[in-house]
Design a protein around this nucleic acid. Structure first.
Length: 213
DNA sequence: CAGTCGATTCACT
DNA sequence: GTGAATCGACTGA
């Protein structure tokens, strides 16, 4: 249940800060996806920071391309990418504009619209797994490339909005190496999660794939 | 223009 | 714990 004070949209200034400041501050916030069937609301419990120009793990590390274009735009917009041939993951762009930094939304607790999320996440064995992992989160919310570039700060009838929610006190925020990131970029401790939260995804190191033939 | 591999998930052993 | 699924963005020739 979301109470009125927590329904306030996060202002753009919230995202117009260094990504390492924004990432932990997003924990406990509410992400709302509006669909024709109704809203789905998620409390964020796990995120990862990607800092464009300095970060070998970032999609923006090698410059602007058609795919990562949104990362180079204004803060507060949603960057959605397609990966492993079947999944989508979503990020929120941080400031300053043009730096191409963003926060990957990795997991959350479904607060509202669980019936809708379950229909999209048939393999989930319980509700804790509905949004436990970045692609699962996007799937549960019905987020795909059509939402790439959406302004999450727009107070109007946007399909996706970030609300104030209930920020997590910093003594309940843990951090560590990023999940699945190759090379030296992986060791940066820029993954943040809520301590002892059952919806946080398990850590996995980057797994290099065997060559075919 | 072909080769490589990914900010992952799921089914199985 | 291991491997398959699946496709398109990016790279380098």
């Amino acid at each position: 249940m979301i109470t009125p004070p927590d329904r306030t949209p996060l202002p753009r200034e919230f995202f117009d800060r260094p990504v390492l400041e924004v990432a932990p501050d997003l924990l406990g916030r509410t992400l709302v996806r509006t669909t024709p069937d109704g809203p789905i609301a998620v409390r964020l419990t796990e995120v990862e920071a990607y800092d464009g120009p300095n970060d070998p793990g970032s999609h923006a590390y090698r410059g602007r391309t058609a795919r990562n274009d949104v990362m180079f735009g204004p803060p507060g917009h949603v960057y959605v990418y397609f990966t492993y041939g079947m999944w989508f993951c979503m990020n929120l762009v941080c400031g300053p504009e043009g730096r191409a930094s963003a926060v990957l939304l990795r997991a959350g607790e479904v607060l509202e619209g669980a019936e809708l999320a379950r229909k999209r996440r048939l393999s989930a064995r319980n509700d804790k797994e509905l949004a436990k992992g970045p692609a699962r989160l996007a799937t549960a919310l019905g987020v795909d490339r059509a939402l790439d570039g959406t302004d999450a700060c727009d107070p109007g009838e946007t399909p996706l909005r970030m609300l104030t929610g209930t920020p997590v006190p910093s003594d309940q925020v843990l951090n560590g190496p990023r999940t699945g990131v190759a090379g030296e970029g992986g060791v940066r401790p820029w993954r943040y999660w809520v301590a002892n939260d059952p919806t946080v995804s398990p850590y996995r190191a980057h797994a290099p794939r065997r060559r075919s033939s």
